[in-house]
Every structure is written in structure tokens, then in C-alpha cells.
Design a protein around this nucleic acid. Structure first.
Lengths: 154, 154
DNA sequence: TGACTTTCATCGGTGCACTGACGATACACG
DNA sequence: CGTGTATCGTCAGTGCACCGATGAAAGTCA
């Protein structure tokens, strides 16, 4: 009987949290455009013409995944993808008018969805929640790229 | 420039949190046995002979996903699966000795991993973190099965 | 008993996420 | 200039997660 209570395991809770969010997104925001897809659209609204790899870095998608997401968005005509003439390795991404429209349209629904998502928490708790998640996620993110030698940090 | 700061979106943070956990699990716990797989093993340590659907419910996996996870664990010889003689629709699951061994072996590593995962937070913050995530996830979970009519709740 | 409904597992399809390998391009150094 | 290294994108493979449809088994009720 060495069974453990998973409700105390942050990893298990993280998975359930994401599932919950997926469900809410699907019902309240969009069935066509997923949350990672919206993240990509959003990154390109902020910085049009960004290259694919950097977009992936901004939104937290590795090269393989960002390639698939971009491919789907391109197939739906939400963005254009062109080779960088300055650097033939890079793919430059830019939203189409339709891509901009979709991004704008989803904004309102996402705000509503976030309210519902966080409704179980009091206002001050919501701020703490965001802060704690971000700190944990950022820290683990740091373990991924082991010690970018910033100046004399070797 | 209607771009949004995704760092304030709980859904986006939830996804990044889970990615961070995946990474840590993969390096500190196991490359063969995933976190959802461990959750299934753990559920069957607590209640041997449970049926597949209930296991899925316990650990938060829908019927399709639990079927796949169980299939993989079965292929690796970590559990046995038999038809319920009392109810031919159900599949009853039970860990093998090897399954028990794997579950026991991972326990220590998971505890270590959880420490690293939560290390960016102070002790009291860790407790708050767990509590907040659980409340949000549970609430959204409730929206999924809309109003199980408990007594006079219709 | 026979028809209706519910429940469980499976299957097909889509999408995110990671790894490792590969080819093409660019860069750095001798 | 040419060779070696680093970077970018793609591809193949694996695994989680959802939905909808299907078929088998069980339960309900006339």
C-alpha cells in the first residue's frame, strides 16, 4: 500500500490544470483555433515578420512543434511564410488580414474565458496564482538551456 | 498593436508549466515511464483490480487516452487486463510484480523531482501553489460533468 | 420476451510536445 | 579559399489528449 496522493504532486496538478484549460478554451473561445495557435498569432501581431524559430521561443514551442502549428495556420491562410533573403535558413512569418481578424476576434472571448477559469480564486489569489506559476515555469525553463554563459558565468 | 502579454494568461502559463514538468520528469525520473503512466500504476497500487474506466477517472484520463496508456503498460508487462466476468463491458486491471517494482522504484525519484520543481518557491508558497492549482483544476473539472443531480440539485 | 437506453471499450481523426537524425545554409578560422 | 562548426527547418517516431462514431454488453420497462 505504498500508493501516493497525486493531489499533492505539482506535476499531476499541472497536467489536470492544462486539461481544464483546454476544455474551457474549446467551449468558450474556439474549436478551430487552439491556444498555442493563438499564441503564435499574438507573437506575430506584436512583431510582424519574425522568423519561425524566434516565434517558437517567444511562445514556448520547440522547433518541431512550431513547424506543425505554423503549417496549420498557413494552410488556413492565417499567415504567410517566406524564406529570409538575408539568411536562407530562416523562415519569416507574417499574418494575413484574415490572421489579424482571427486574432482580434478571439481577444474578447479569451478575456471572458480567463475570468471563468480563475473564478474559483479571490482577486488577490489570482495574482498570486499567476506569479507562482510563472516563477516555477521560468525556473524549469532555465534548466533547459544550461547556463547561457552571460559574461563571466562559466 | 493589439498584442497581449501571454505571461498574464493562466492557460498559457499552465501549458508552460506542464512542459517544464515534462522536461524535469524526463531527466530526473524516467525516460520510459511517463507521468500519466505512473499515475495509473499508482491508482492500481491503491486499488488493485479496478476497472479501466474508473482508473481513468481517478487519474484524469478520458476513455481514449486511458486505453492507450493501459495498452502501453500492458505491452511492457506492468499490468494485466481481464474482462470482468460480472460485467462483460468492463476491463479489470491489476499490476504485475514488475509493475509494482517500477512503481516503488520511481517513488524516490519523483519526490526528489518535486523538490527541484518547487524549489523556486518558499515552503509556505509551495503549499499555496498546490492549493490554488487544485482549486482551479477541480472547478473546471466540475464544468465538464454538468451538474450530477445530487439529490435535489436539478 | 422484445425494444429502448445506458455504459464501456475501441477506432479514426486531429493537435500538441518531445527526441534524434538529416540536409541545407551560414559563419568562423586557418 | 576551404574545412569545420553552428543554426534552422524538416522528418520520423513516440506519447498524451480530445472528439465523434461504432459495436458489444447490460439494464429498463412495457
Amino acid at each position: 500500500m505504498a500508493a501516493v496522493d497525486l493531489a499533492t504532486h505539482p506535476g499531476h496538478l499541472a497536467r489536470r490544470l492544462q486539461q481544464a484549460h483546454y476544455l474551457l478554451w474549446n467551449t468558450m473561445v474556439s474549436e478551430e483555433t487552439t491556444s498555442p495557435q493563438y499564441a503564435v498569432l499574438n507573437a506575430l501581431v506584436a512583431e510582424p515578420g519574425l522568423d519561425q524559430r524566434t516565434v517558437g521561443e517567444r511562445v514556448g514551442l520547440d522547433r518541431s512543434t512550431i513547424a506543425e502549428v505554423v503549417s496549420r495556420l498557413g494552410r488556413r491562410g492565417l499567415l504567410d511564410k517566406v524564406r529570409d533573403p538575408q539568411d536562407g535558413r530562416r523562415s519569416l512569418l507574417r499574418l494575413t488580414d484574415e490572421g489579424l481578424r482571427v486574432h482580434r476576434r478571439l481577444g474578447v472571448r479569451i478575456a471572458r474565458m480567463n475570468q471563468v477559469f480563475l473564478a474559483p480564486l479571490a482577486a488577490d489569489e489570482q495574482a498570486v496564482f499567476i506569479d507562482l506559476i510563472r516563477r516555477v515555469a521560468d525556473a524549469a525553463e532555465g534548466l533547459r538551456n544550461p547556463a547561457e554563459p552571460t559574461a563571466a558565468a562559466g
